[in-house]
Every structure is written in structure tokens, then in C-alpha cells.
């Protein structure tokens, strides 16, 4: 097998803090299940979109919680985040999301969408596995850096699976400052 030329190697090499440096399917926008159901007229796809909502919500929360916990662990006196009740609740929600994902019946047309959810779940799991071992000190910095990339990657996958019309949306605007008469 021939070695790739220098340009190809450079182009394909990511910096350590790049979220694409991690293995696995890349985060990429996929057809929204709500739009697919309209174009294909498929009740199955519509049901899939409906079944996605609790999984999406679980993952949205797990990513938000893990992000907050990482900030607190890195910047504040709250070093023992593994012992916080919020960390336990986060893990429980992640487990629940995994069970729901396992039961999710994804028609062929939305397999790409489900793959994004699977990846978001997987990267969250990788972070959760490291939380009990988090320690202060120089080595912790390296570990935090790794988890930073992993949480960004998890978010990128969930963002790729977002579909506002199907209720898969990162922000609830209902009572936001902008929620006016429309």
C-alpha cells in the first residue's frame, strides 16, 4: 500500500483539541425525520420521530449536565463531582437513554439519524466512565482536555440530529425573552 502524500496526511490530521480527532462516524446533518415522514408519507417514520423525542431530551440534558459538571470540576472547589447527586442523576438518565435507543425502531430512511443519536450517547458514556477517576493536578488537565473534545463531539452529533419541526430542538424558547405573540 502506498503512503499518502504529505498534503493528504496534513489535511487528514486533526489537532488534539479538534472534535473530529475522535474515532467514530462523523457528526453530519441528516434528513429530518419530520420532513422524511412528509415526503415519504410513512407512518413508521412519523412514529420514529415521535419515539425520538424522549431520547433527544435525555441526551440534551446529559450533555448540558456533563458540561456544567466539567466546568465546575475544572474551575471551582467542587472537585468531587462524581459524588454529587446530579452526577448520579445524569448517569441514570444516560442509562435510560441507552435503553430507549436500544428499543428504537428506525426505518432504513432514518438509520443515519439514529446513528447520530447513538454516537452522542456513546461519547457521553465515555465521559461518564472517566468522571469517578477525575483528580486534581497536572494529569487531570490532560484528562479534562480529552473530555472537552468528547463533550463537544457529543453535542455536534446531537445538533446534527436536531429537527425543530419534530420537537427535537436544543432550546425551549416558549418563555424566553423573545417569546411574543406568534
Amino acid at each position: 500500500m502506498t503512503e499518502p502524500d504529505l498534503f493528504t496526511r496534513l489535511a487528514a490530521t486533526h489537532k488534539p483539541d479538534c472534535l473530529l480527532s475522535l474515532d467514530g462516524p462523523l457528526p453530519q446533518a441528516v434528513p429530518n425525520p419530520d420532513e422524511l415522514s412528509r415526503t415519504l408519507g410513512s407512518d413508521t417514520v412519523a412514529r420514529y420521530a415521535q419515539d425520538c423525542r424522549p431520547i433527544y431530551e435525555d441526551l440534551r440534558r446529559v450533555i448540558g449536565q456533563l458540561s456544567g459538571l466539567l466546568i465546575l470540576a475544572r474551575l471551582t472547589a467542587k472537585s468531587d463531582i462524581a459524588d454529587l447527586p446530579e452526577a448520579a442523576q445524569c448517569r441514570a438518565r444516560w442509562v435510560e437513554a441507552g435503553q430507549r435507543l436500544g428499543c428504537l425502531n428506525a426505518p432504513a430512511a432514518v438509520q443515519g439519524h439514529k446513528a447520530q443519536l447513538d454516537s452522542a450517547h456513546s461519547f457521553c458514556g465515555q465521559i461518564l466512565a472517566q468522571v469517578p477517576q477525575l483528580r486534581r493536578g497536572p494529569e487531570a488537565e490532560t484528562q479534562f482536555d480529552r473530555m472537552t473534545v468528547q463533550i463537544k463531539r457529543a453535542y455536534a452529533h446531537l445538533e446534527a440530529a436536531s429537527a425543530p419541526k419534530a420537537g427535537l430542538q436544543m432550546v425551549d424558547f416558549t418563555h424566553a425573552c423573545c417569546a411574543c405573540t406568534h
Partner: peptide, 10 residues
């Protein structure tokens, strides 16, 4: 949890 984006926390 209104009006907060997990992405901003990320």
C-alpha cells in the same frame, strides 16, 4: 430550564 442552550454550556 427555559431559554438555556446546552451548547452554550458546552
Amino acid at each position: 430550564m427555559v431559554a438555556v442552550d446546552p451548547g452554550d454550556i458546552v
